[in-house]
Write a protein that binds this DNA or RNA. Structure first.
Lengths: 344, 344
DNA sequence: TGTTAGCACTCTCCCTTTATGAGTGCTAAT
DNA sequence: ATTAGCACTCATAAAGGGAGAGTGCTAACA
């Protein structure tokens, strides 16, 4: 069977209506609201065809139709009109620029909250992936007592630190020398490239302070460089209650448990690093637990280096055009902001 | 009317039973389960008195009784048996020691998750209050381009940073000198005590690099020292669904919205800094929205300096003895862990 | 005088029944 | 090919009708 233009129109109408109201759409509704000059009976015939082709489903015999995931896919690929953020939305997104802080965590946190506030979906934002980030500076700062703080500053302004015990006979100058060596050696490398066995200069140094240097290198490699998972920020988890399909307490609970499963979210979003927005609809998602939802993903960057991923999670009948336009614009703005702060 | 020992026994039984099952407790139930050698009819008379005195309430005529907030208060103050963590609970709490990281954020995050996992209530943990924390070290780290990172390391291992633009003609040595001055000047002060006008040495320095020094001091005072709110970590927000009183989607939603209201949580917990555990029951809470819940608060410290507050939030019929014992023990363990890491 | 058995009464909860209405598919007419 | 008409299906809401838990009151009892 062919997907003629009339079928497409009807499909569009069903998807559009269902996205707006979340109730199965009947033939009469379409005839009245979308005014396409044919009678409900004709629409019924077409809908019956569309059901056979896998685009529509009936929850039960005497209900209207709802779109299948296949229909949403067709909708987002072919039928959906692109949309720009409204003036109000744009204004709210641009508040990212007004953040005073230069701490990436805080910026990302605000991004999550803006995303969920504007869209009323749940937002997930991954902090900068450490594997994508360059080491800029390593510093051993003496703390009183017998401790020093090993600090690593990266190109995205992220700072990782760990405490190290230092022997009595070590002075500040010595710490500085080691800091310099480490910086010189690992500067502009990623954490993934850290391999303490290759640091020849430093190994020479080992002769006099073998144990201490070992401690430092060990802390660097194991406490800092091996944390390859960045943080996850969530926004608007309670938004899911806005949707009638989640009025069921069991479904709502499942959803919220899902949002607490950081590993899953990390796996879902973490592997995505394309420039453009990606839409994953219902059963297209490889995680079974999320096959009731759709996810709209985007990324943010510094310069042209993609740093992290953002996601909007909502019911499969989500307003894709809105989610996409917001996601795109937020991506642009936050990237521009971070680039201004940290580029070069 | 007097609260004789028999009335107390009955009240105890009602509270205990209602905490366990969440259903109104009838006279027969008490006679059977708590075996106090009197008949249901007598218990009914006593319960009627207790109701008059404001300790019990009836949801409707033909239901059993439920405790009022006043009854819970009496219960936690006088009737409740203290309880120690079970071996299993203690073992799970002591995993705090096994954390490899020395980043306070991560430790606190784990504490929130342990608290909520063990108790099955929602946990809220405030990060160290900056007003309680001493400045240990200030450092200007040159980043390539024309930027430096202004880093402040504190006595609780927290690190605050902000970016500063630096003029062309400034070299590393100069940055070091300023770092040393700042450290010398503000060391062992709290952020609250920071007043850039008093830094005489540094103001002298201003003569040659007036604009730059101004930038540094301004960033220090405004971007770092003025952030007096620490972070908030939540655990087990979805736990609320375990309780029948929150099966109602509207109540569940209200609760979750509450948990997203960071300011409120901050105000609720932030002002509390006593050593011992504090229990706030239902209407005792000054925030109307939280008068359906009870909160058990505790603190954690470094040495004998109280740093931050923790809270367990659950229904008013929460298992206070459990919540209190867990809260106490977690407080002890996390304080000991932090003290080992950061003291001196 | 305090305690208890007995009993009528109340109210919720759950089950069943019934009515309503939205929507369909089929058939026959256009 | 399109559409009006109609019988049929199914979910949802409203109404009725026990069953059960629990109470308060009264009168008997130790």
């Amino acid at each position: 069977m062919q997907l003629g233009s009339r079928k497409l129109h009807i499909l569009h109408a069903v998807v559009h209506d269902y996205i707006s109201y979340g109730e199965p759409v009947g033939s009469r509704t379409i005839a009245k609201k979308y005014d396409m000059g044919i009678s409900p009976a004709t629409i019924r015939n077409e809908m019956s065809d569309l059901e056979e082709m896998g685009y529509l489903q009936q929850p039960h015999t005497s209900a209207g139709r709802i779109p299948s995931d296949k229909a949403y896919r067709l909708y987002v690929d072919k039928l959906m009109k692109t949309r720009k953020p409204t003036a109000d939305e744009a204004e709210r997104i641009e508040r990212i620029y007004q953040q005073k802080t230069t701490e990436v965590d805080k910026i990302i946190e605000q991004v999550a909250s803006i995303l969920s506030d504007i869209t009323s979906y749940t937002s997930v934002v991954l902090g900068p992936r450490l594997s994508k980030v360059l080491i800029r500076h390593i510093e051993l700062i003496p703390i009183e007592g017998q401790y020093a703080l090993l600090l690593v500053v990266t190109s995205a302004g992220i700072i990782k630190d760990t405490l190290i015990r230092i022997p009595d006979n070590i002075d500040i100058g010595y710490l500085e020398r080691i800091s310099n060596m480490l910086t010189k050696y690992y500067r502009n490398k990623t954490f993934a490239e850290v391999n303490i066995n290759h640091a020849v200069d430093i190994q020479k140094e080992m002769m006099n302070q073998k144990e201490f240097i070992n401690n430092v290198l060990d802390a660097f490699a194991n406490n800092i460089a091996s944390q390859n998972k960045g943080d996850i920020y969530l926004g608007g988890t309670a938004n899911i209650f806005n949707f009638p399909e989640y009025q069921d307490i069991i479904k709502a609970r499942e959803f919220l448990n899902l949002m607490e499963n950081r590993d899953m979210l990390y796996n879902l979003l973490g592997r995505y690093d394309e420039e453009d927005v990606l839409i994953v609809i219902g059963t297209e998602n490889e995680f079974n637990e999320m096959q009731d939802c759709s996810v709209v993903m985007g990324t943010y960057s510094i310069g042209d280096k993609i740093l992290g991923t953002m996601g909007l999670i909502g019911p499969t009948r989500m307003e894709y055009s809105k989610a996409v336009s917001i996601m795109r614009y937020v991506g642009q703005i936050v990237s521009r902001h971070l680039t201004l702060l940290f580029k070069e």
